[in-house]
Design a protein around this nucleic acid. Structure first.
Length: 103
DNA sequence: AACTTGACAGCAG
DNA sequence: GCTGCTGCCAAGT
């Protein structure tokens, strides 16, 4: 049973369109909190996987960040590439172009 | 109830 | 652009 905070985070994740990514900071802003760490923890637990596209969340610096699924970061990069996001090593190319800000 | 941990962000050097 | 330190809040121990 997820906490209300986690539920809010997952709900936010579902709003991310395919081929786009968002940052923990943007999610925190969307939830009206500065607890980016808490957001990261909530996503990391991800009890709703794969119902929630948790692989579309990256660092504000354009780097991939971390991943707790199959194969770790490697799979995360692969998934993003599948969705149309170009990733080199651990960095997203044209990051600002694919970034989703919950407009 | 107190302390530690964590899929981070922002700034200084 | 990279390394390191600080600040943030929720969850788990």
């Amino acid at each position: 049973m997820p906490t209300p905070f986690q539920d809010a985070v997952y709900k936010a994740l579902l709003k991310i369109p395919k081929g786009r990514v968002t940052t923990y900071g943007e999610i925190a802003r969307y939830l009206h909190t500065k607890a980016v760490r808490a957001v990261g923890s909530a996503v990391g637990k991800n009890p709703n996987a794969p119902a929630v596209p948790c692989h579309r969340v990256v660092l504000s610096t354009g780097k991939i960040g971390n991943y707790s699924g199959e194969g770790g970061v490697d799979t995360k990069k692969a998934l993003l590439t599948e969705e149309g996001v170009v990733v080199v090593n651990d960095t997203i190319l044209n990051f600002k172009d694919v970034l989703y800000t919950f407009s």
